[in-house]
Simulated scan of single mutants.
Amino acid sequence: MEPLISVTELADALDAPGAQDAITLLDVRWQHGGAPGRPLYAQGHIPGARYVDLDAELAAPPGPAGRHPLPDLADFGAAMRRAGVSGDRDVVVYDDWQTWGAARAWWLLSWAGHSRVRVLDGGLGAWNAAGRPLSTEEPAAGGGDFVPRPGALPLLDADGAAALARRGLLFDARAGERYRGEVEPIDRVGGHIPGAVSAPTMDNYRPDGRFLDPAALADRFAALGAKDGTEVGVYCGSGVSAAHEALALAAAGIPAALYVGSWSEWTADPTRPIATGPTPG
């Protein structure tokens, strides 16, 4: 299944007979340092969507494993069942900020074995721009049967990320100035994993928030070294925007492993090496 769905495709699917039994909608509004997502959801969401809290349900508490570690599988499964996720139902996820929250949900569900998850291209902004309706009615919780079975997507730990940077291609999805070590507004120190290549998520999408088309994404990643047969991985600050990069890579037809702990875990250990400056070459 393609990882992205357009507003037109989603609207047509929701208007089709039996849509309530065929599609689970998840609102994953979240942004770093921004307003909580649930009040925004309550003010208006795509009809039928249930709210999912990224910090509470798509991540474990921050600590040595990073700012957004993998959630406890039992807790994650219970949260997804409360949100109506079932193994035999399509899932569409969206947010209202750069697709980061939605991409995190897409990656986690896909990694945990759900094979029918897509992200609304352009998010709530594209839905609103198309004049589609919103609702303040919250569906009842529950009804899902999803049980996580992790391993459907490749996962990296710190040692695996370091090794991949040496033998393959490890993308750093953060802003270029953080990669280069010029600024670091969040984590202990700036810079990047030695051997990683700068590939900011901001270059994956158009000004209106929709992703570049698959061919353009493929060209972008090829120019950064993702040739046929190259093993690819990606990380960011805390594993959230890296999921966005993994989504863009999937849309381009390029499989990629995700280092969930990312820079926040890497720098929690002062013995790990840190590189600064631009991508070599």
Rank of each mutant, 00 (worst) to 15 (best):
M202C: 11
L258M: 08
V240N: 06
A173C: 02
V85E: 02
G261Q: 05
I23T: 15
R116Y: 04
P150F: 03
V52Y: 12
A252D: 04
P150V: 04
Q98Y: 10
D187I: 13
R50V: 00
R220W: 01
P62K: 03
K227R: 15
A16M: 11
P39T: 00
G237H: 05
A65N: 12
A268P: 00
L4N: 05
A112Y: 10
F146Q: 02
G237D: 06
A215R: 15
A165N: 13
A126I: 04
Q20S: 14
E177Q: 14
L25K: 05
H244V: 08
A275N: 02
W106F: 09
P255Y: 12
G239M: 09
G191C: 10
L134V: 08
L108Y: 07
Q20T: 14
A103Q: 05
R116A: 15
A165K: 13
Y51P: 08
V85P: 05
I5A: 12
A162G: 09
P47W: 02
A243V: 09
L108H: 01
P47R: 13
V189A: 13
D213E: 15
D121K: 09
I254N: 08
G277P: 02
N128L: 15
P200C: 08
G101P: 12
D88L: 03
D145L: 04
A105S: 01
G143C: 03
A248C: 11
R29P: 01
D55N: 07
G229D: 05
P36W: 00
A60L: 05
V119T: 14
G233A: 05
A16S: 15
G66H: 13
A130M: 07
L249K: 11
D53K: 02
S198N: 13
P71C: 09
G209P: 12
Q20R: 15
G84D: 10
R67M: 10
A42K: 06
V28P: 06
A35F: 00
